[in-house]
Amino acid sequence: MSITDEFTKGLWKTVAPFRLVLGLCPTLAVTTSGINGIGMGLATTFVLVFSNLFVSLLRRFIPTQVRIASFIVIIASFVVIVELVMQAYFYPLFKILGIFIPLIVVNCIILGRAEAFASKNGLLVSLADGLGIGIGFTLSLFVLGSLRELLGSGTLLFYDSSHPGFHVMWESFEPFTFMLKPPGAFVALGLLLGAMNLISRHQARKGG
């Protein structure tokens, strides 16, 4: 596969939370608004790209027996960087995402890509793979977050009181707060996954 193929497969064919059912905890927990989804997605993408880069660079030097432990140390180092940078420059977002930032270290997408892809492939394709999967993850979180935000509070792109985003729903719209609660997260993700399956089936029928 070419580099572009490696990049684009992460955007639809193997988009992480839906197709691979990996990385569900942050997907469900932080997507109460679109901006939160983007923040979490970008933090994860950063870690994913750099861990892929370093795992791919070091793949000839890491002994097979201790590879998982080595991967985890590489991933954890970048998670600490993200944690400290976010704490310094994006404090409100850091507060909202809370425990889920250190938890990037156990996000199975990242370890999965290190083990299944970066440890077997060259530098450039590994970068493309990390970037593709990461952007796909970010977009999924953004779509899910926006959907929940739209139905649950009637706004889009809300960040804080000084950046309130847009009120898109009509005047008398009664927010469907169920969507912002934990059960709503499961149901919204389940329905989105169903919708995605529907589109894929439609495409397959047209193609075949």
């Binding site: 059960p183 709503g184 997260a185 499961f186 149901v187 993700l189 389940g190 329905l191 996954l193 169903g194 399956n197």
Partner: peptide, 8 residues
């Protein structure tokens, strides 16, 4: 998908 909805 149905697993997620059930979990909800």
């Amino acid at each position: 998908a149905i697993g997620l909805i059930t979990a909800g």
